[in-house]
Design a protein around this nucleic acid. Structure first.
Lengths: 182, 182
DNA sequence: CGGGCCATGTAACGGGTTACATGATTAC
DNA sequence: GTAATCATGTAACCCGTTACATGGCCCG
């Protein structure tokens, strides 16, 4: 259960609403943890029940009312516990339906697979471009919290870049190999 | 729902038992789709209900009895449909708790993160070694089915290698960066 | 005589997704 | 007038995990 822990992680930076959290996920960890808004609201409720967060209603006249969530001491402890926990080693949680399709692609003519791979490469390149904006966004957020945090944001962004680049390279070499064999 | 489809995929190669399937997952797609034996048995039952597979009891005296599963025409159609389906684009399904921990690592002293990263790199290197055996295993299986299939097995294995290598490189560069900043 | 392989399952639970529902304000 | 942004939620469902249960054969 990592969604609840990453919510706690964001709340450790400061008070936020469910909506803020939803945006925070979208603008930072979306490459390795996609979170649905509705799920976040659900999880916030559970965290409140467990007393890991407290909630304060904020009435607004110009905008819809909102709920500001704040992490408690117990919540911070739980978050830190998770942060240091060993966590399933590696590759155990990996689920990649795309690679599964490639694996079984002997069942259709090679052109289909070539098409899938080129579309995939294009997709990766697009995401690589999108991530070009990440360093700037880190710098802008980085000013708000201290640098201690933003280093790590940079590390995960770097992972994202390398990953996408690797995917592009792999897909292109795969296409080449398939074309050789036609 | 990709487990059921990959089961169909394996059965498209030939008749197998739940046990065989479990081994097949373990020796091929485990790097990007880990399947529990118990889950496979569950899924086989559902596939039988949907008439995507048929089941034949095989009585054995020397060994426990077993059930041989065979894909039906409807099953093959469903499998092919899935194989050609667009499938969620990319990165949407990605869930990586390890990167999540790195992202939030500003909350503990850098040494902890350095420790996590070195352990991670060691883990990846180990898996890289393990995958050295894959080409041989592909060749051995490859003889049984025609080459049409084994090319694709090689492509996914190549992905695994590149991925692990990228992880090692990234983790090492991350450690270097963290050590600079101490 | 212990461990590993063969071989199959059940029950409870957890975590996440999808689809749906609502509604005000602001900017083009 | 219509799209985007702000803002919160419910209900049903699905997929997968964990833990448990069973039991014979073969090899060292």
């Amino acid at each position: 259960m990592s969604l609840s822990h990453s919510i706690l992680g964001f709340l450790a930076y400061g008070r936020m609403t469910g909506y803020d959290l939803s945006k925070a996920f979208g603008s930072s960890v979306r490459f390795f943890w996609h979170a649905q808004a509705s799920h976040i609201y659900l999880e916030l409720k559970k965290l409140e029940q467990k007393q890991f967060v407290t909630c304060e209603q904020v009435l607004q006249t110009e905008k819809p009312n909102k709920k500001l969530y704040e992490i408690t001491e117990a919540g911070r402890r739980e978050f830190l516990r998770w942060l240091a926990s060993e966590g399933e080693g590696f590759g155990k949680g990996t689920k990649d339906a795309f690679l599964l399709r490639i694996f079984f692609s002997g069942n259709h003519p090679p052109e289909v697979c070539i098409g899938m791979l080129t579309a995939f490469a294009a997709d990766c390149r697009r995401q690589l471009d999108e991530m070009g904006a990440v360093p700037a966004s880190i710098r802008s957020y980085g000013g708000m919290v201290d640098e201690r945090h933003s280093i790590y944001w940079g590390l995960t962004a770097d992972f994202g870049n390398r990953y996408m680049q690797m995917c592009v390279d792999w897909a292109e070499s795969a296409v080449r190999r398939l074309e050789e064999l036609r």
